[in-house]
Design a protein around this nucleic acid. Structure first.
Length: 270
DNA sequence: AAGAGACCCTGGATGC
DNA sequence: TGCATCCAGGGTCTCT
């Protein structure tokens, strides 16, 4: 499931391969993948446009177009993009095809059909509610501590709240809380200064390491070239119920918090 | 403001 | 083997 690091890796790949390609036609095999605007308007407004840059905000992919519009995509759990020659056989889960000049396709595939595409003039229409970027140079430990103090919520669901902080998903939240030694049920305003600092550092380290390893492939995640990531070999707690904690050797626990499976070490995380 | 539950969707796992 | 049921998960919405 693509979280911030996976979306970053995809954006970096697409930025290189898509740059200056022109959308000649769009085929929507699953029109409901388009959230904004109506599918017919989406197709009409996309045709003829040239990609100028691909980047990321939170878990959203942002494609800048030459006329000032923005194509955005949220991959949810199983969405993926692939840039490849048009003659390549079509994957059965392809939901939208952007046919480009030079006989290339940009294909959006999504097994579970939760992913969404947007075409807007103003980024705020889609990204307006997002919290700060955890890897932004301006996102300081002091700011994070103040954000935590202002809220009275369990730390794990709070980190997953995209309006609080943009880009954290289930995997990296569990990993960051483990690395910081903080129990996922702790209340945000109960963290000490030292704990807030540790969590801030852990979030950034976990995300940076995952990007360097090209993301975590547990199930369907692939980058824009179809390659798997490597970070799954470095997970300390996520998906490791009953396995020994890498720090103390006691078994990793799995509980449900806010309808999300949560992995942690009851001895190391207090 | 916080938190629970429903909903969207499908493949894979589990149960009988 | 074959069928039915359950589950995961991100985000959005409603309700308490």
């Amino acid at each position: 499931m693509p979280e911030l690091p996976e979306v970053e890796v995809i954006a970096q790949g697409l930025d290189v391969s898509l740059r200056d390609h022109i959308i000649q036609s769009v085929e929507l095999l699953w029109p409901r993948a388009v959230a904004i605007p109506e599918p017919a308007a989406f197709v009409e407004r996309a045709i003829g446009r040239r990609f100028t840059q691909v980047w990321r905000r939170g878990k959203y992919l942002v494609f800048n177009l030459d006329d000032g519009q923005y194509l955005l995509a949220h991959l949810r759990m199983t969405g993926s993009f692939c840039f490849l020659p048009r003659e390549e056989p079509l994957d059965p889960y392809v939901r939208a095809i952007f046919q480009l000049d030079g006989a290339y396709d940009l294909r959006f595939a999504d097994i579970r059909k939760f992913g969404q595409l947007y075409l807007v003039d103003r980024l705020e229409d889609v990204l307006g509610g997002l919290g700060p970027e955890p890897l932004d140079a301006h996102f300081s430990s002091e700011q994070f501590a103040a954000m935590l103090r202002r809220r009275h919520a369990r730390i794990k669901p709070l980190l997953l709240d995209q309006t609080f902080l943009a880009g954290m998903g289930n995997i990296y939240t569990d990993e960051a809380l483990f690395q910081a030694g903080i129990h996922p049920l702790r209340c945000s305003d109960s963290l000490s200064e030292a704990e807030s600092r540790r969590l801030h550092a852990a979030i950034q380290a976990v995300l940076r390491d995952a990007i360097a390893r090209r993301g975590t492939t547990l199930d369907t995640y692939r980058d824009a070239e179809g390659k798997q990531g490597n970070n799954q070999y470095y997970l300390n707690v996520y998906g490791r119920k009953d396995a020994p904690c890498p720090r103390c050797g006691r078994p990793i626990q799995r509980i449900v918090i806010g309808q999300r499976g949560t992995y942690f070490c009851a001895h190391c995380q207090v």
